[in-house]
């Protein structure tokens, strides 16, 4: 089985000085929408409150996807919740960032062989940052946000552009699990075996970029 657990970085092609200034504001003011599907949510209150105080970095909770820049997937995602996450992500406005908490969005974690749980979040949505650990401690969360901020400044956190560019690929993957019709309790087969991987897509992209230059 080919796995695509990469923090892929699609550098912004049209990165210019103005975009750099905007990126400064984007990294200094990140509004979060946390999708509390799993146990990771419990790590957020300490991160936000007195001890670690996330608001220092201009990060704060927001009520709806329309307002938010940052979508936190705090734990495992079942197929049912995936549908909601996709809708929420698509309702967010560019630029938007997606962060997966813990090992579950990376590889399924302890639920890797459970039929209603999806194993690789980045097959369905563009993940800008994954935080390994089960669960990641607040220090790890803050550390990863620090890293995400650097990437925003450098114009590397462009998952939303990747999603736009390879929408067909993501959409096909989403449909595969969301519109699944065969019985779930059957000998397991990788539904994504014959799909081109994201790596391959990116390799093609790099070639295109090279051609541009």
């Amino acid at each position: 089985m080919k796995k695509n657990v990469y923090m892929t970085n699609l550098r912004d092609e049209r990165q210019n000085a103005w975009e750099g200034i905007l990126n400064y504001f984007r990294k200094r003011s990140m509004w979060m929408l946390y999708y509390c599907t799993g146990c990771g949510a419990v790590e957020l209150p300490p991160t936000m409150t007195t001890r670690f105080d996330m608001e220092r970095f201009g990060m704060g909770p927001m009520a709806t996807p329309r307002q938010a820049d940052l979508l936190l997937i705090t734990g495992y995602l079942s197929v049912k919740t995936l549908k909601r996450v996709i809708r929420s992500y698509e309702q967010m406005q560019d630029p938007k960032y997606l962060v997966g908490f813990g090992s579950c969005p990376i590889n399924g974690g302890i639920y890797w062989d459970t039929y209603p749980v999806i194993n690789h979040l980045e097959m369905f949505l563009p993940v800008d940052m994954s935080i390994a650990g089960c669960m990641p401690r607040p220090q790890a969360i803050l550390d990863s946000f620090e890293k995400l901020r650097d990437e925003i400044q450098e114009g590397k956190a462009v998952g939303y552009k990747r999603y736009e560019k390879h929408y067909d690929w993501y959409k096909a993957n989403q449909d595969k699990v969301l519109n699944r019709e065969d019985a779930v309790l059957q000998p397991w087969e990788d539904p994504f075996a014959d799909k081109p991987t994201l790596e391959a897509l990116q390799a093609g992209e790099k070639m295109e970029e090279g051609e541009d230059k």
């Binding site: 999708y35 329309r66 549908k83 909601r84 929420s88």
Partner: peptide, 9 residues
């Protein structure tokens, strides 16, 4: 109808 509906379709 493309509205905030708590993620529901």
């Amino acid at each position: 109808l493309d509205n905030y509906t708590s993620g529901e379709t």
